[in-house]
Amino acid sequence: MSISAIMNIAVSGMQVQQTRAAATANNIANAMTPRYDRLKTNFSSEDACGVSASVSPSGAATFDEGSNVDLTQEVVSLIESESGFKANASAFETGADMWDALLSIKRD
C-alpha cells in the first residue's frame, strides 16, 4: 500500500467522523422537538480506499411530547467521533511526515 493510499484512507476516516459529529449535533439541537426521529450514521467500508458514511432517521418510535434522542448516547457519540477523528488525523500526519522524509532523502 502506498503512502498516498494511506493518507486517502485517513482523510475518508476524518470525513466520516465529521459526518457523524454533524448528525449528533443535529440530534442534540432537536432533542426537545416533538416527534423528532434521531439521525443515525451508517458506516461502510470501500474496497481498499477508505470508508464512507450515510445519515438516516433511526426509525425508532417518537413521542408527541418529545423526541427519541437520548442525550447521554449523543454525548458518547461525540466523544467517539472526536477520538476517531484524532486517530485518523494522526495517521494522516504520519503519512505526511513519511513524504517529508522521502523528499529530504531524494534531495540529498
Rank of each mutant, 00 (worst) to 15 (best):
S83T: 14
V11Q: 12
L39W: 04
A10N: 09
S67R: 10
S45C: 00
N68C: 08
A48T: 06
S44A: 10
L78T: 01
V55N: 07
A25I: 00
A22Y: 00
N30F: 01
V11I: 14
E82K: 13
Q17F: 08
D64R: 12
Q15F: 06
Y36T: 05
N42K: 08
K86A: 11
F85S: 03
N27R: 01
N30W: 04
Q15A: 11
S90V: 13
A60H: 10
G59S: 05
N42Q: 13
A22G: 03
A101M: 11
T62K: 10
A21F: 01
E46F: 00
I28W: 01
L103D: 11
D37K: 05
D70A: 09
V16N: 07
L78G: 02
A101P: 00
I9R: 11
A89Q: 15
S54A: 08
G13Q: 04
G50M: 03
S45E: 15
S58R: 04
T72I: 12
V75L: 15
D47M: 07
E46P: 00
S54Q: 07
S52R: 13
N27Y: 07
E93T: 15
Y36N: 08
E80S: 09
Q15M: 12
N26C: 02
K40C: 00
S67C: 07
M14Y: 07
G84Q: 02
A5N: 15
R20D: 02
S45G: 07
G84N: 02
D47L: 09
V76Q: 06
D70R: 10
T33F: 04
G95A: 05
A5C: 02
V51N: 02
N8D: 12
C49N: 11
S45Y: 02
V69T: 12
E65A: 13
P34C: 06
R20C: 01
A48L: 04
E82A: 14
N42L: 08
S12Q: 10
I79K: 12
G84L: 06
T24Y: 03
V16C: 09
E74W: 02
Q15E: 13
S67L: 09
L39M: 12
S58T: 13
Q73D: 13
V75S: 06
E93G: 12
